[in-house]
Amino acid sequence: MYCSVAREALSARIDGEAGPVPAARVDEHLESCADCSAWFDRACELSLRVDLSAITAPDLTADILRSAAAETQQSGYVGRGQAG
């Protein structure tokens, strides 16, 4: 198996996706290829560090809209098509 194929399959495995080749073939390759084994270890570590699914951003929509409305009122801006 080419390392590029193994690494594509390993990347899919890390992401919980189906790989392009059977997992058993990839595992056999890992046992015989030190480079891919090291690559997989580093990729797993990086994936744990960068687990974006664990990050949640606060919903600031209401705060932003309130702030924009307050700035609009203070500036006296009427808006396009709303002038009297």
Rank of each mutant, 00 (worst) to 15 (best):
C36T: 06
A34M: 07
D41P: 02
A57I: 10
A9F: 01
S75Y: 11
A24H: 12
E45S: 09
M1Y: 01
V21D: 03
E28G: 02
R49V: 00
P20H: 03
S67W: 07
L60P: 04
T72G: 02
L65S: 06
L65T: 13
R80K: 14
P20M: 01
C36L: 01
C36Q: 05
R80T: 11
P58E: 14
D35P: 02
D51A: 14
C3N: 04
A62E: 15
G81V: 08
S11T: 13
E28D: 12
S32P: 01
R49S: 04
V78G: 05
E71F: 10
C36F: 03
A54M: 12
R13M: 02
V50A: 14
L30D: 05
M1E: 09
R25S: 09
L46I: 04
Q82H: 13
A9Y: 00
V21M: 04
S67E: 15
V5R: 15
R25Q: 12
C33W: 00
A69T: 13
A6L: 08
E31N: 10
A62M: 08
Y2K: 14
I64A: 14
E17A: 11
D15E: 15
A68N: 14
G16I: 08
D51N: 15
R66D: 09
C3M: 04
V21W: 00
D15M: 05
A69N: 05
Y2S: 13
M1H: 04
T61F: 04
A54Y: 03
G81L: 10
S32L: 05
L10S: 07
Q74K: 15
E45A: 09
A83F: 10
A34H: 08
P22C: 10
V26W: 00
A9P: 01
F40K: 01
R49C: 03
G81P: 05
G84K: 15
L48Q: 11
G79Y: 02
R7V: 03
I64M: 14
G79S: 10
Q82K: 12
V5K: 15
C33R: 00
E45T: 08
A9H: 04
L60R: 12
D59T: 09
D59W: 00
S53D: 14
C33G: 00
T56Q: 11
S32H: 12
S53P: 04
Q73P: 02
G84L: 11
D35M: 13
L46H: 03
M1C: 10
G81Y: 04
A6F: 01
D51Y: 02
A38K: 14
L10Y: 05
G79V: 06
C33I: 03
T56H: 09
A57W: 03
A6S: 13
Q73F: 07
L30M: 08
C36E: 02
T56D: 12
A68C: 08
A69Y: 06
E28H: 07
A70C: 01
C44Q: 15
R42C: 09
Y2W: 01
L46T: 10
S75W: 08
V21Q: 02
L10W: 04
S75M: 11
I55A: 05
A6M: 11
A38Y: 08
E45Q: 05
I14V: 15
I64E: 13
D59Q: 05
